[in-house]
Amino acid sequence: MSDNKVKVATCSLAGCFGCHMSFLDIDERIVDLINHVRFDRSPLTDIKEVGHCAIGLVEGGLCNEENVEVLKAFRENCDLLVSVGACAINGGVPAMRNNIPLEECLETAYVNGIGVVDPQIPQHEDIPPLLNKVLPIHEAVHVDYFLPGCPPPADAFWELLTAVLENREPNLDYSLRHFD
């Protein structure tokens, strides 16, 4: 391979892509970034399988079996795995279902919901089975860094990536960790 850029992979599990949008808020700095990193699997590239990367940014928690598989691949291939945003760190909004039995959740959405046509709980081999509870990713794998926020500010992404590129510990200013 001709380039010696640092490889970065990103994905969104049970998340809303809001963290990715926030990442893009680094605006024109993305041009600088591209000079130093190459994106591997990411919604930005449409690469489906993750290759060996220096950094993996994971947005969202685990809500189904497929999430676990993707996370496993990320953990196996990324030297540093970063848990990005409230859902990855705490489960976030998807985890609101955790106190309600799965059956009740599905029935509310697909059977008894207002305006549902042909009510039935979707069932197909292509639909990954849901987990009993939505889990934060560190419940399942070792995580090296946590980037807090809903979403984390663009500057927090910037600090994390520049720190890794400069081979130093990331240090988030108070303003990047304070969300009131």
Binding site: V68, I121, H124, E125, P129, L130, N132, A140, V141
Partner: peptide
């Protein structure tokens, strides 16, 4: 790598016959 037991974590879905649906579908 993965610390959770995926079989156990999908027990509710299996009870609803949603997991491994392909086999019976």
């Amino acid at each position: 790598v993965v610390k959770i037991d995926i079989h156990e974590e999908t027990s509710a879905a299996r009870e609803l016959h949603l997991a491994n649906a392909g086999e019976s579908h």
